[in-house]
Amino acid sequence: MERWTGLEEVPENFGPSVVTIGNFDGVHRGHAVVLGAIVDRARTTGARAVAVTFDPHPAMVHRPHQAPPLICSVEERLELMAATGLDAVLLLEYTLDFARHTPEEFVQEYLVDGLGVSTVVVGRDVRFGLDNSGTLETMVSLGEKYGFEVMVVDDVGRHDESARWSSTVVRRLLLEGDVATASTLLGRHHQLRGVVVHGDARGRDLGFPTANLSQDASGIVPADGVYAGWLRRPRLLARGAQTLDAVLPAAVSIGTNPTFDGVQRRVEAYVLDRTDLELYDEEVVIELVERLRPTLRFDGMGPLVEQMHADVVRTREVLGLLTGHDTTG
């Protein structure tokens, strides 16, 4: 998949193209349906499938104090979009100047002149241009004027009776700690990606050494609690799917360690049954499968260690690993 950050990078006389526009934060299952639709349309019409997206998120520009946390980083977003089969992504810097484009100016400059659009694929609730004044009706009218077709993709899924697949719903679920339902909407487990840094070494002293993610790790950090998940090592995965120790089962703690009167919120992953791993300064990905329990304050080390053993047993069950005696003690 080609990546462009401005029209000057788009090949001259590019087109015809099938285009969609959006933020695509998280690239959830609803996004995947839209992106899949433009890929299918492009393949059947001999066009190129292109998505136009933005960085930073428009809310960061218009109302930074109310902007939502991002489900994933820009790089992860592009990787997920590439997996849908797109030919190219035009990643535009979103600024106040850019936001002043009227709907017609945006369509003419970027879609018609820049990308040689033949079909625009959008949802019924599409909004674009100055003050989000462009609607589906606007796009259809502009299509008639500039000679492109507008294809509408209806809502394609709901996780309950009231909420469709959306980044907003995914964010809410993650912040509530419901990573299992969020995974259903995303079509994959939610990920946190960051470099392993030194912590307080309390876990090692207790027999549960943890990999501590750096504070600048990407991905929404869910509600405090203990989670079952996987620790993935991209450096090893790049060598091949069968690489030893590339994907490891883990019990993940998120919170401030209230038993020790901690104040800094941390993400720590204990790889089951492993005390020999050296992960410092390595970038890892933590996939969260299910929340096991909320964060608790324990009255001393004994009850804490007993609960940690129970968390490990439960993690094995959630991850579908072979059951048996807990060998962490």
Rank of each mutant, 00 (worst) to 15 (best):
2 E>L: 10
2 E>M: 11
5 T>F: 08
7 L>R: 14
10 V>I: 13
10 V>P: 00
11 P>F: 08
13 N>Q: 13
16 P>R: 00
16 P>S: 00
16 P>I: 06
17 S>E: 10
19 V>D: 03
21 I>V: 13
24 F>G: 01
25 D>N: 13
26 G>S: 07
32 A>K: 15
32 A>V: 14
33 V>L: 12
34 V>K: 03
35 L>K: 02
37 A>R: 14
46 G>S: 08
48 R>S: 15
49 A>S: 11
49 A>R: 02
50 V>A: 01
50 V>S: 04
55 D>G: 03
57 H>M: 14
58 P>H: 07
63 R>E: 11
65 H>C: 02
65 H>G: 07
66 Q>M: 15
69 P>I: 00
70 L>C: 01
77 R>H: 06
79 E>D: 05
80 L>D: 02
83 A>V: 04
86 L>V: 01
87 D>F: 00
93 E>F: 01
95 T>S: 15
107 V>Y: 03
112 V>M: 07
116 G>E: 03
117 V>M: 07
118 S>A: 14
120 V>D: 00
124 R>N: 12
125 D>W: 00
126 V>Y: 03
126 V>W: 05
126 V>S: 03
128 F>R: 07
131 D>G: 01
134 G>I: 02
136 L>A: 12
138 T>K: 05
139 M>F: 05
141 S>Y: 00
142 L>F: 06
143 G>M: 05
144 E>Q: 12
145 K>Q: 13
146 Y>H: 10
146 Y>P: 05
154 D>K: 09
154 D>G: 11
158 R>I: 04
161 E>L: 13
164 R>V: 11
169 V>P: 02
171 R>I: 00
176 E>S: 12
178 D>V: 11
179 V>N: 14
180 A>E: 15
185 L>F: 04
187 G>S: 08
188 R>L: 01
194 G>N: 11
197 V>K: 08
198 H>K: 15
199 G>H: 09
205 D>F: 00
206 L>I: 11
214 S>Q: 11
214 S>Y: 09
216 D>P: 05
219 G>I: 09
221 V>N: 02
223 A>M: 04
224 D>K: 10
225 G>S: 04
225 G>E: 08
226 V>M: 06
228 A>M: 09
230 W>K: 13
233 R>T: 14
235 R>P: 00
237 L>M: 14
241 A>D: 15
244 L>D: 14
246 A>Y: 09
250 A>T: 13
250 A>V: 12
253 S>Q: 12
256 T>H: 15
258 P>M: 12
259 T>C: 05
260 F>T: 11
262 G>H: 10
264 Q>C: 08
266 R>N: 09
267 V>Q: 09
271 V>I: 15
279 L>N: 07
284 V>S: 06
285 V>I: 15
286 I>N: 04
294 P>I: 04
296 L>V: 14
303 P>D: 14
303 P>F: 12
306 E>M: 02
307 Q>H: 08
313 V>I: 15
313 V>S: 15
314 R>K: 13
315 T>A: 10
321 L>C: 10
325 H>W: 10
